[in-house]
């Protein structure tokens, strides 16, 4: 089988076409919003929000509402609650996150397992995603959400840049920092909602931070970091999906493993910060006998 045939073969199936498109969209927006998580040190919050959408999903099912809307509301609500707990008590943010996300997650699981028998909801699909089951309307919803996320970031780019670098300075300059924070949290929740179907809530955090973290090691400015992250996210989504097709492995985890593999390569070989790059440079410079310097993290 030639490589063209190898590439074309899965595309004979409409469900694979939808899966690929969906994976590309999700890979793109996860990489963009995930870059903000990295520079604002909010990766754990992203993880917390991804679990916290569960009860919103379940309640939307019960009342017959839109599951995307339900999940979005639960996601934003969880960030507000985390903020409220840590500003109104001496509980620190990480503890507040742990409490809120596990509370929401547990409630979500209880609700979904309760309604699982009557409706045709499958808990596993939400936890781990089911990209091969993406319907036309799911794909459309993902496309609309992705367009909204990308448009918002393009329009507010300079304000979000200022706010994410120096929140206090941005506030002093008169930017509405609370509103910008809410926008960022909403974008994160929307990204997670759009990604549920393809990767599931458990692993979505990897799609958000792995491409961004890889790009962070290789670039010097936020726009280039995001651009490279999008490229890496899209490539990982495609490669992961093909691997899943040909090796018959779960698609979400396949995408995640490819993403993380890219990070490991950058970590070892990044021109400026790579672990092995530094060893190599030291050896060339004649310091081979000295113990290796502390790992290339700053």
């Amino acid at each position: 089988m030639g490589w063209l045939e190898w590439l074309a073969e899965p595309l004979r199936y409409p469900f694979m076409q939808r899966a690929l498109l969906s994976a590309l969209l999700v890979g793109t927006i996860c990489a963009i919003t995930g870059s903000y998580l990295i520079v604002r040190r909010l990766a754990l919050l992203g993880d917390a929000v991804s679990r916290a959408v569960m009860p919103g999903l379940a309640i939307a099912f019960i009342v017959g509402g839109n599951i995307f809307v339900g999940a979005f509301i639960a996601g934003v609500l969880s960030t507000a609650l985390i903020g409220y707990i840590h500003t109104h008590s001496k509980i620190k943010e990480d503890t507040a996150m742990g409490l809120v996300f596990s509370g929401f997650f547990a409630t979500g699981i209880i609700l979904i397992t309760k309604i699982q028998s009557e409706t045709k909801v499958d808990l596993m699909h939400f936890l781990f995603g089911n990209i091969l089951g993406v319907s036309e309307s799911d794909l459309l919803a993902t496309a609309v959400i992705s367009a909204a996320v990308v448009a918002t970031i393009l329009l507010l780019f300079k304000e979000l840049l200022f706010h994410s670098f120096d929140p206090l300075g941005a506030k002093a300059a008169g930017l509405p920092t609370e509103a910008l924070h809410l926008v960022l949290m909403s974008l994160i929740a929307l990204t997670i909602v759009a990604s549920m179907q393809s990767v599931g809530v458990v692993l979505v955090i990897a799609l958000m931070i792995a491409p961004g973290a890889t790009a962070y090691l290789l670039t010097r400015r936020l726009p280039s970091m995001m651009g490279l992250a999008v490229l890496l996210g899209a490539v990982a989504s495609l490669v992961g999906l093909y691997l899943s097709y040909y090796l018959d492995i779960a698609s979400g985890p396949a995408v995640v493993v490819v993403s993380i593999a890219c990070f490991v390569l950058a970590f070892l070989f990044s021109p400026r910060q790579g672990l092995l790059t530094r060893l190599w440079q030291d050896r060339k410079a004649g310091y081979a006998e000295k113990p290796a310097p502390p790992v290339g993290l700053r």
């Binding site: 520079v39 300079k158 840049l161 670098f165 962070y216 936020l222 280039s224 970091m225």
Partner: peptide, 18 residues
């Protein structure tokens, strides 16, 4: 602030123009 932030000197000064 976190000085590892992916921004150049010019980027940071431009923030003042926001």
């Amino acid at each position: 602030v976190d000085w590892d932030y992916p921004a150049t000197v010019a980027d940071v000064v431009m923030m003042g123009r926001c």
